[in-house]
Design a protein around this nucleic acid. Structure first.
Lengths: 186, 186, 186, 186
DNA sequence: TATGAATGAGTCTTCATTCAT
DNA sequence: AATGAATGAAGACTCATTCAT
């Protein structure tokens, strides 16, 4: 039963996410995580200094991806094509990290003080600005927020929607683009 | 300085909401609420049987309003005008109960097991159906969810937006109607 | 079985002191104190916010007495009679609070960060200065420290000494006075 | 940069003593020692079977020296000269092992169950007897204890005293001899 | 209408220690 | 000579809740 270095660390993260989603962050104790995993609490502490560090580690991948997306957005001119691409890429990230994203969304209050979560919030604000038309009216700003929310939260609300998930995502994206009044791509 | 029946009960609710918003539901203890109010924990228990009953009581007004709105919607024919009116009325409710709505939104995971919160979730689903065009395509469903989310979450994201709040709300509503593809009212 | 207000608080202090003396501060857990007392740990926390507050409370009486003694000393002229009286009064305090004094003495390192203990240390330094002859030579300083230590630690070392404790205390005091080179009182 | 046998062992002892002095025995964990040293906890266990064995090893040198001193004292006739020499030699030992001595003094309660510390306490009792005049009165016993305490604790209290440390030690010794009523040496 | 005192269950966290490699 | 991974036991502390007064 060989086990490569820190297989355990990864299993802890997965089990933690599972339980955090099932029962909520504050209602999930490290004891429960350890038990479901079949290790001792102390083993968790060997791999993560605190419960907060564990949860922060769950947000790191999203954080990295969003940071990169924001970086890319900032390096581009503010054209409709770029804004459309930003929405598209965000939607890819959200669907790739759906469970984590959902967890953070449902536990906002509980995670307010967690480092990583603060960064993610900042990224969302940055993205909102990037998809907002230059020199925006109040209505433009509202459109930006609406479009972003649709892309971000939509998948959770639509989880049980029939049909091909990829097609649904495309439709969601189309609606979001329409909210933003992006011209149809050829 | 007369004090109407159960002034205290109301003050407990307000202080609780305040703290729940500041620190999150699970991170707020009854001790903290009692302390900020200058009474004993036991006093809280005189007015509310449990912490859960206290938080449930916070959702009751919203619950009543949403229930009424759903009831009204169901009693109407499914016309564009009715759907527009549903959005408008929802937006009024959200803005009237903004703090409570925000609290429930940010503490979804923590409140999943709370009676009142489950009812509110059901109301939102019912509303989604009511504003969905009859015989809907997948895209119609997506539009319905997007519109509803915009009306519901928009205010939180736009809290710091400049300009007259009433005017902003009207604009938000206009955007939502557009997402739903409701024809312009005359 | 009537019990006057906060009988319990006092019983906690006594039991704590007992155990702290038997097993040392750090080796004594609140669980042990609670068990020996027949209450729950939570009951201890009802009366003392932390373990540190509990131990600090044990030092308060000594603190008060030493503070008063230092105050008195400072209000007096620096004569041999006053210095002799300072030693005498200190010896009374030490014997009145022998268990507490011993506990603090044996757990210096563990208590270094406890508020009350810091104050007591300062009092001892102040007393050392007060019993030091004015314009002291190095030797005078050494005499002061030696005399004070004898009065303070002597009783612990002499606990098992035969003979009348009061008489022993008088002898100890006489030796201390001699160390300080105080002239015999008439 | 050759490294003699068990350089590490010695560095562990030093770091441990450092930390024990800074934070107290019970408040110092093996993790802290290992971290300050830049090794793993497991490395400590390679060199010392337990934490207790580590701390015991710190007392060994003092133990050996005191044992030897007691042995010497027992082999001598009980003359004033011998008693004076005992005080002198003790004072040399205390000043050579000042940090260790201080550590044991400040952590008495924590170390009560440590083998080495018990032996040291016995040595001190033996020394007290050796410096007590034969056929002693109560006062003689008190003098012996006072003198011994002065020699043993004095240095810690006088640490910040100005002047040449060697000269101070000599003065301390002179005072101690006077407490014991030893006649002046020619 | 409220309080003071208490509890039982649970939380996160740390520790000394072990052992295969 | 030393490490990485893990454990079992325990620690301080907090919480929602109860109840006699």
């Amino acid at each position: 039963m060989t086990r490569r270095r820190s297989d355990t660390r990864e299993r802890i993260r997965q089990t933690a996410l599972e339980l955090f989603l099932e029962r909520g962050y504050d209602q999930t104790s490290l004891r429960e995580i350890a038990e479901r995993l079949g290790v001792t609490k102390a083993a968790l502490y060997y791999h993560f200094k605190t419960k907060e560090e564990l949860v922060a580690s769950l947000g790191e991948d999203v954080d990295r991806n969003l940071a990169e997306l924001v970086g890319w957005g900032r390096s581009q001119p503010s054209t409709p094509e770029v804004r459309r691409e930003l929405l598209r890429r965000l939607s890819v990230i959200v669907s790739e990290f759906a469970p984590v994203a959902r967890f953070f969304q449902e536990n906002q209050a509980a995670l307010r003080t967690v480092r990583g979560e603060q960064r993610n919030r900042e990224h969302m604000i940055a993205l909102t600005e990037l998809i907002t038309a230059p020199d925006p009216s109040t209505e433009d700003r509202i459109r930006a927020v609406s479009a972003l929310f649709s892309v971000f939260f939509g998948p959770f609300a639509l989880e049980h929607l029939e049909g091909d998930p990829e097609a649904n995502r495309a439709t969601l994206l189309k609606v979001a683009a329409e909210i933003l009044r992006l011209p149809d791509p050829e």
